[in-house]
């Protein structure tokens, strides 16, 4: 029974990582940049939902909607102001800019909401599920998180494989110049990608704050790094890779905490990543890089 409950909390944490990692991996696939500010967009999403429920008294669904709208706008604005002027710049310059944006968001949040942790009321107010005569309790947040993750991956796969904008995304990620020559608006496609990624970050922020209800300006940093790890784990740039990578990472973290050591859980997660990369240097589902002389 305890195994099952660990499995479910692992899947639930993994689902959150997967949702964040999907945003990371999409942006990486198309803009070829590591968006280190992604974790802080999660934090903004959490705060937006907090403000809506705690201060404005909005219902949970409306608060999620607010978080999604604000984060989407934020993501697109960041892309337009900070990343778009650097399309032709070396990747390290873009990386540092992303870090600058991350500092900016964290410190702005600290000025607005102070660094004291805010206690977040879960957006899911359903009773938890009791199975096997009460031996196994599954929190409603965990169920909603896992369901949300599955819905998101289905929707994303549909968008990317069936719609016109999805086709454009694939084309841009394959070859930016060729895509442009075929009449695809590259800038618009990148903006849409950032919008989707940031909307996912908002959802992840709300779910994360519901599961771990202490909200701080730095709340997004560690989940951001972990999700980035998950994206690399699965093969960065690959959508199914981010999904499986996220789930696996969540499971490893929870099982590591439960059966090996609570204190060393981060070390276990990151050691697994190094091990996987040693065997499969481009992640579980990453494309092999062929080098031409």
């Amino acid at each position: 029974m305890t195994f099952l409950s660990y499995l479910i909390s692992g899947l639930s944490l993994g689902s959150i990582y997967a949702i964040i990692a999907l945003g990371y991996t999409m942006v990486y696939g198309i803009a070829k940049m590591l968006n280190f500010a992604h974790g802080d967009v999660i934090m903004v999403g959490g705060y937006m939902s907090f403000v809506a429920t705690a201060h404005l008294g909005w219902p949970p669904l409306a608060s999620i909607l607010l978080a999604v709208v604000v984060c989407t706008l934020l993501g697109v604005t960041i892309e337009q102001l900070a990343y778009k002027p650097l399309r032709a710049a070396p990747s390290l310059a873009v990386l540092i800019t992303a870090i600058g944006v991350s500092y900016f968001l964290q410190n702005a949040a600290q000025l607005i909401w102070s660094s004291n942790p805010k206690s977040f009321t879960s957006v899911v107010q359903l009773p938890s599920l009791k199975l096997f005569d009460g031996q196994l309790t599954i929190s409603s947040v965990a169920i909603v998180t896992i369901a949300a993750c599955i819905l998101i991956i289905i929707a994303l796969t549909f968008i990317i494989s069936k719609t016109k904008i999805g086709k454009a995304m694939r084309a841009v990620s394959e070859d930016k110049e060729a895509a442009q020559l075929m009449g695809i608006n590259v800038n618009q496609t990148i903006s849409v990608t950032f919008a989707i990624g940031s909307a996912l970050a908002a959802i992840a922020g709300v779910l994360l704050s519901s599961a771990y209800p202490l909200l701080m300006p730095t709340s997004g940093a560690m989940p951001g790094i972990k999700a980035f790890t998950a994206a690399v784990f699965g093969g960065i740039g690959s959508i199914p890779g981010a999904f499986w990578g996220g789930l696996l990472l969540g499971l490893i973290e929870i099982f590591g905490k439960a059966y090996i050591s609570t204190q060393l859980s981060d070390a276990i997660v990151f050691s697994m990543l190094i091990l996987v990369l040693l065997v499969k240097p481009t992640g579980l589902m990453g494309k092999k890089i062929h080098e031409k002389v």
Partner: peptide, 11 residues
Amino acid sequence: ILILVMLTSNN
């Protein structure tokens, strides 16, 4: 400052 320096030196 960090963002502006990166933008001005690379754009």
